[in-house]
Amino acid sequence: MASFVSAIWAILRKDIAAEWRSRQLVTAMLVFVVLVIFIFAFTLDIDTLTRRQIAAGVLWTTFAFAGTLGLNRTLASEGERGSLDGLLLAPVERSAIYFGKTLANLFFMLVVEIFTLPLYAVFYDMSLAQPGLWLVLLLGSWCFCSVGTLLAAMAAQARSRELLLPVLLLPMALPVLVAAVRASSAFVNGLGLEYAQASLNILVVYGLIMPALGFMFFDFIVEE
């Protein structure tokens, strides 16, 4: 158990250290999200109420595409430069690689969300002082990264990995995106927990099932 946790921690630290030195991934994700915010804000000629109603949809669409950019970089690039073999050679449970990579992806996605949410608040008249919204962001991002990392590991071994990942990921992540948009919308529009409960339940169940599948099948996915 100790080596399992320390392997997860080592992979998470390595990915953060590599990103800290290159600043490529988070920068690309941030630029993408900011551009989408500005494009939607200046092209949609709508009143404040409608703007607030669509905020959750815009929010999650943007984060999902930015997250896909991140997933492509963190695991698919390991396959591209061959460093995935370095991880697979290590005498650790291979599911530790899955959890390390999922947590690294979650970290990068949350960093981007934290930096860009104030812009959403300004352009979509949202209040950020809602713990429920932050809970949805955390749960939704965890679900997205847990399924995304599993599929990115599959795509990492394909030649057209950067095209393959979104094609595989978006249908699989659809329940997460729908539930996250509904739950976020409930909090953004001040409807409260009772309107978000069903969607939150879906996120919790999905957030338990996907990591369990990753734990069981990651070894088979990365096996040659």
Partner: peptide, 28 residues
């Protein structure tokens, strides 16, 4: 097993020290 393949299996962004520290953790 120590394996030296076609690829160096290293991380470009990290220093030599950081690369070896990472693998040292994985191999305990």
């Amino acid at each position: 097993v120590g394996y030296l393949g076609h690829q160096p299996l290293l991380y470009d962004e990290l220093t030599a020290d950081q690369n070896l520290e990472f693998f040292a953790r994985l191999y305990a």
